[in-house]
Simulated scan of single mutants.
Amino acid sequence: MSVQNLLALNWKMNKTPAEARAWAEELSEKLAADKPELAVMAPAVALPALAAHLPPGVTVGAQDVSAHEAGAYTGEISAAMLVDVGARYVVVGHSERREYHGETDADVAAKARQAQANGLMPIVCVGEGLDVREKGEQVPHTLAQLSGSLDGVGPEVVVAYEPVWAIGTGKTATADDAEELAAAIRTALRERYGSEAQHIRILYGGSVKPDNIASICAQPNVNGALVGGASLKVPDVLGMVDALQ
């Protein structure tokens, strides 16, 4: 694959705007010019501070977006609002949104379509729970989720495979596990988008750290990582960047 690796750093519900600025300034001091693409997926209130203080070439993204363009949707944040504060990416369908907020594949697809309509690149998350993995049904489960989550969505997308049993648990899918699903996802993307599927990045997410990221991202169909806990400390981010060089 000729596409550049993407490190999407998902802070989840962590860091105030002041803390985000300090993190960005520390990263600016220490990050080498030669690096994979970095995108910081921060809480919406921290995006302006990040956009103003991140080093050149590091982008920002959001962790969710409304499926609606605008209107009477109290508490929601539109794609146009995110673009206006500098966001380039947005995560949709993260397992925590699916589990805690009941988001369906149709909800995820609606959000992805809204993101694309406003020039945001959606990072569409799919993956199986432990019960599905133990039954050996991880491939059909994940591909069904992918199909529903990409309904009406164009090829300007990133797909993140996140085995739910490996998120925040310290358990990590092996490099072979990651490639098994990434290869299946790639085949499904080819069936949907044709030759354009070769340019779609497939990320792995789930307890990614400096000591395991290189082996995972060395797989033929894995083009980076969606990183949770290890994204919160600049030294860990630098360690992952170094591991990928």
Rank of each mutant, 00 (worst) to 15 (best):
R21I: 14
A44T: 15
A160P: 07
P220W: 06
Y161D: 06
E19G: 14
D236Y: 04
D105A: 14
L189T: 00
G194E: 05
C217F: 08
Q116M: 10
N118I: 02
M81I: 02
A188L: 07
K135V: 02
W11E: 00
M81G: 08
A72W: 08
A218M: 12
A144C: 07
Y73R: 05
I200N: 05
K209A: 07
A106Y: 09
Y204G: 11
A72E: 13
R186G: 00
A62K: 03
G170I: 04
S66W: 08
P163Q: 09
P55W: 09
P140V: 10
M13Q: 09
E180K: 14
P140W: 07
Q145Y: 08
R133M: 01
G194M: 08
T174S: 15
D176T: 13
A62Q: 02
S78P: 08
A243L: 02
G102W: 06
I200K: 06
H199T: 14
L7F: 05
S95R: 11
V222F: 14
Y193A: 01
G86I: 03
P210M: 02
A197R: 04
G206I: 05
R113S: 07
A33M: 05
V241D: 04
V45N: 15
G205P: 10
V139H: 07
Q116I: 09
S215M: 10
E196P: 00
A117F: 01
N10M: 04
V237A: 00
A72T: 07
V126E: 07
A8E: 01
T187C: 06
L50V: 09
V83F: 09
P43V: 14
E29A: 15
S207D: 04
V227H: 05
A44K: 12
V92L: 09
Y161H: 13
V40G: 01
A183H: 12
A183F: 08
E156V: 10
H53T: 10
A80R: 14
A183I: 05
N212R: 05
D34T: 10
D242F: 03
L244D: 03
E180S: 15
A214L: 03
Q219S: 12
T174E: 11
E162I: 08
G206K: 02
M1W: 11
K30F: 00
L232F: 02
Q116S: 11
M121R: 15
T104N: 11
N223Y: 12
A115C: 03
E191L: 11
M240W: 01
A18G: 13
P36E: 01
P122Q: 09
R88L: 10
G129I: 09
T174G: 14
W11H: 02
W11M: 08
R186Q: 00
L203P: 03
A117G: 11
G71L: 06
E19W: 13
H68K: 14
A197Q: 06
E26L: 14
D242M: 08
R98E: 01
Y204P: 04
R190H: 15
L120W: 04
V45Y: 15
A197M: 05
P140K: 12
G102E: 00
Y193W: 00
P220I: 06
E69D: 15
V237R: 01
D176E: 15
I185S: 03
I185T: 04
G61S: 01
D84W: 00
L244V: 02
P163R: 13
S28L: 05
R113D: 10
E162K: 11
V58K: 04
A184F: 02
L146G: 03
V124Q: 02
D84I: 01
T104A: 13
V237Y: 01
K15N: 14
N5C: 14
V227W: 07
S147V: 13
E29P: 06
